[in-house]
Design a protein around this nucleic acid. Sequence first.
DNA 1: TCATAAAATGAATGAAGATTCATTCACTAA
DNA 2: TTAGTGAATGAATCTTCATTCATTTTATGA
Lengths: 192, 192
Amino acid sequence: MLTSKEKIIIAALNQFSRKGLFATRIQDIATEAGISQGLLYRYYKSKNEIYVDLIEDALDKMNEAVEGIASLNCGGREKLLNSIEGMYKTIEESDRYRQTSSLIAQAMGSEAIPQEAKDALKNKRDLPYQMFSKIIVQGQKEGTIIEGDSYDLAVLFWSTLNGLTIFRNTRDEKRPLPDKRFIANIFLKEKI
Amino acid sequence: MLTSKEKIIIAALNQFSRKGLFATRIQDIATEAGISQGLLYRYYKSKNEIYVDLIEDALDKMNEAVEGIASLNCGGREKLLNSIEGMYKTIEESDRYRQTSSLIAQAMGSEAIPQEAKDALKNKRDLPYQMFSKIIVQGQKEGTIIEGDSYDLAVLFWSTLNGLTIFRNTRDEKRPLPDKRFIANIFLKEKI
DNA sequence: TCATAAAATGAATGAAGATTCATTCACTAA
DNA sequence: TTAGTGAATGAATCTTCATTCATTTTATGA
């Protein structure tokens, strides 16, 4: 049995991910959570506070996932392939990631979100680029990944995955994503 | 000298692109346009109506741009290279495109926008995929573009550009985008 | 110049929705 | 059984807008 606070978090993540901070009503969250409006205020000072909590959490989850991949004890090439594999599975199968990534995408595109949410974004959004940049440098040293500015390549890598995530998130018909090898071959010296 | 209606459109596009439909106040638009709140209602029935107009317009503009490229009288390879070239210039230099693409991205990510805006999105968002799919088929026939499902490749192409657009739009420091050749080489048989 | 219409203003209205709080409910332990 | 405590409710309050409209200003043309 979920606690009231857990119910609130689950419902709020779903509502915010679908409608954003400003179109989501406290009543929407309460109704989905199956509790009264008033109870929500025992656990959170305001709607904004729930939102900021969720944003911070979403960014942390995303960064943990990326760090998990990068800290594998293997070659840069394998880390890259593993990242693509893992991200594809996540994008295609995880409803939680759909919510998380929609939440972050919406937040990044709005200047009206609370300052705390902006701060969290500013502090945490760049970690994936840094991690993938390191992986690419490793692969370049090992001769398995193409030459080029590693941060540029990381930007291309993560932006491509984000672009595909958004494509996937915004369609009802769940067409499979393009073959992963297309993405791998952007970066690998020896194509697969 | 701009007409009042033009001032409203310019101000609304800017406000909506930065804050979205629900966090933008009529007063914000009026103030930026340098007119009174009341005047706005001489030209539009409601805030939603302005928004829907802008969304339809943004989608049309984007589709016209894509069609312009695809109807060039040249090979598929050249069309593809030309598209990348054109999109890069647009992404990096056009403030109008920043607004337009932010507006569309926000709209795509929200279930709370007006039904008319949803309809416009549903009807118009797929044209780029179709156009690029055709270009890819042409290039495949000509032997200049790699094999593979053309729609899949179009999804990858347009998603990648969208991902880079969002990256660019959400940073203040305007780092140049990754070398265009990385993107071209995803699709070209003979690499550049 | 003056009459008329169009453009523009901004205060008033009303609705929606966030937050508060007095009250009730459910459980625990003495 | 009952006093005490935290959980939960939902009606009432208070604020923030979108929208309206009576009034004023500006432009037009006879």
